[in-house]
Amino acid sequence: MLVRKQVKGRARITFVLPADTPPGPVSVVGDFNDWLPGVHPFEPRGDGTRAVSVVLPSKSVHSFRYLAADDHWFDEDHADGHDGTNGLLHT
């Protein structure tokens, strides 16, 4: 799930996943972090989910995916679109 909040010309995007699906560490990787795993890891929250937030320029488009343990790549079901390989995020 994606949660969006506009803040002074920028967009705060919070990526949210269930606490245990998939199991183990997960990070969001994309053009906004040079596709480097581990830069934006999901952290547990009190409501039983995991989340990570990034702040991006408003009115921009970004490619991203999730990376879990054992090199398991997967997509966000609620992405704004897909380019054939990656999810797209419109801020």
Rank of each mutant, 00 (worst) to 15 (best):
M1G: 13
M1D: 08
L2K: 08
V3W: 11
V3D: 15
V3G: 10
R4T: 03
K5M: 11
K5G: 08
V7A: 05
K8R: 10
G9E: 03
G9V: 02
G9F: 09
G9D: 05
R10E: 15
R10P: 02
A11C: 11
R12P: 00
T14C: 07
T14I: 06
T14A: 10
T14Y: 03
F15A: 01
F15W: 04
L17F: 02
L17C: 08
P18C: 00
A19G: 06
D20E: 14
T21E: 15
T21H: 07
T21S: 13
V28I: 14
V29L: 09
G30H: 07
G30F: 07
D31Q: 04
D31K: 10
D31C: 14
D31S: 13
F32A: 08
F32C: 03
D34I: 01
W35L: 12
W35E: 05
L36K: 12
L36P: 01
L36M: 14
G38M: 05
V39D: 05
H40S: 09
P41C: 09
P41K: 03
P44T: 02
P44F: 01
R45Y: 06
R45S: 15
R45L: 09
R45Q: 15
G46T: 12
D47H: 04
G48T: 00
T49D: 03
A51P: 01
V52N: 15
V52W: 13
S53N: 12
V54H: 01
V55E: 14
P57Q: 11
S58I: 08
S58E: 12
K59M: 09
S60T: 13
V61W: 09
S63Q: 12
S63H: 11
S63G: 13
S63Y: 03
R65P: 01
Y66I: 02
L67C: 00
L67S: 03
A68L: 12
A69Y: 07
A69K: 15
D70C: 14
H72N: 11
H72G: 02
W73R: 13
W73L: 09
F74C: 08
D75Q: 14
D77G: 12
H78T: 13
H78E: 12
A79Y: 00
D80G: 04
G81C: 09
G81T: 09
H82R: 08
H82I: 10
H82L: 10
T85P: 02
N86I: 00
T91Y: 01
T91K: 05
